[in-house]
């Protein structure tokens, strides 16, 4: 039971990370209808820029600001040179363009900053939390907990931003109705550039937390890819969906990784580790068959 709880809690905490990446997807999708496959590459790029700048001697806070600057430039460039030129194309073409963007970023990042695995020190310790260990005999990493806390704080901050600032309201208006957004008086292009910058910020936080846990490396892009099944569970347009979906995926993949291989081993013999690699996708697929609109999405009938 203790062990189960440990796995569950560990899974939930890492699930928060998936939520964070998924959040970046949701923001861009809501504002511009673009399904941004490059969000994972952005996480990698952001983390690499952060360690890169730190490697040049900058303290963490300065490196963070500079990396955010870099992500903003990247976002604006994407909007200006790619998305703006594709406004009348089918969503699926835009999606494929972001696959191209992902490749571009994945090549650009190591070209700028080198491609060895880099340690990222942000001053969080990774130890079992003494209280939980003493009283319940459960190992929960203080790092994971702090990281999850930071992630949740970011989500809360974004929610406030959308609720209470003019720009935030404009963003929400765009998500609901492009015409209405125009009447607010902020050009659509600015809003898109802005939302890419915000998504870059989210990617930066995700990359920082993830990078400091597992090292900054190319494999980050694969981890970030798991935000896709999270989105399917949560629905593409729902912020709470992204969070809940992330938690479900995080917890269930860890549980699956621990509990399924022994069962399979007793049935077929051999080693069945690595279930984590596909479990979220298959789960999303099965989920789609039952509820295509996602946990929080609404059922929708095509208008003709």
């Amino acid at each position: 039971m203790q062990f189960f709880l440990e796995v569950l809690i560990g899974g939930l905490l890492s699930g928060v990370m998936y939520s964070l990446v998924a959040l970046g997807f949701v923001l861009i999708f809501k504002a511009s209808g673009v399904f941004n496959f490059a969000q994972g590459a952005m996480v990698y790029f952001a983390a690499l820029s952060l360690v890169g700048v730190m490697g040049k001697g900058a303290p963490l806070w300065l490196a963070f600001i500079l990396a955010f600057g870099i992500m903003t430039i990247l976002g604006i460039a994407t909007e200006k040179f790619v998305l703006r030129k594709m406004v009348n194309q089918a969503p699926i073409s835009l999606f494929m363009a972001t696959i191209g963007l992902a490749f571009f970023i994945e090549g650009l990042a190591p070209l700028l900053w080198g491609n060895d695995v880099r340690a990222l020190e942000i001053g969080l310790v990774d130890e079992p939390i003494p209280y939980l260990l003493d009283s319940f005999n459960i190992v929960v990493s203080s790092f994971d907990l702090t990281a999850a806390g930071l992630a949740l704080a970011l989500v809360a901050g974004l929610a406030l931003f959308f609720q209470f600032t003019r720009v935030g309201r404009a963003l929400r208006a765009v998500a609901d109705d492009h015409q209405a957004a125009l009447s607010i008086g902020i050009p659509l292009q600015h809003i898109w550039a802005l939302v890419w910058a915000v998504a870059g910020f989210v990617a930066l936080v995700a990359g920082m937390l993830w990078g400091s846990r597992n090292g900054v490396q190319f494999a980050l892009t694969f981890t970030a890819l798991k935000a896709l099944p999270v989105l399917i569970l949560g629905g593409f347009t729902s912020v709470p969906g992204a969070i809940v979906g992330g938690l479900i995926i995080g917890a269930s993949e860890k549980l699956a990784e621990i509990y399924i291989p022994p069962v399979m081993q007793s049935m077929f013999g051999g080693n069945f580790g690595g279930i984590e690699g596909w479990f979220p996708y298959v789960m999303a697929l099965l989920f789609l068959l039952v509820r295509p609109e996602g946990l929080f999405g609404e059922k929708h009938i095509d208008r003709v």
């Binding site: 790619v82 030129k85 594709m86 194309q89 073409s93 494929m96 363009a97 696959i99 191209g100 963007l101 992902a102 490749f103 571009f104 970023i105 994945e106 090549g107 650009l108 190591p110 070209l111 491609n115």
Partner: peptide, 21 residues
């Protein structure tokens, strides 16, 4: 050779976007 492979990724990515646009 690593640089070549990075540039290759970038060229692939850029080409895809170029063609789609």
């Amino acid at each position: 050779s690593a640089t070549v492979s990075h540039i290759q990724l970038m060229v692939f990515g850029a080409l895809i976007m170029f063609f789609l646009i």
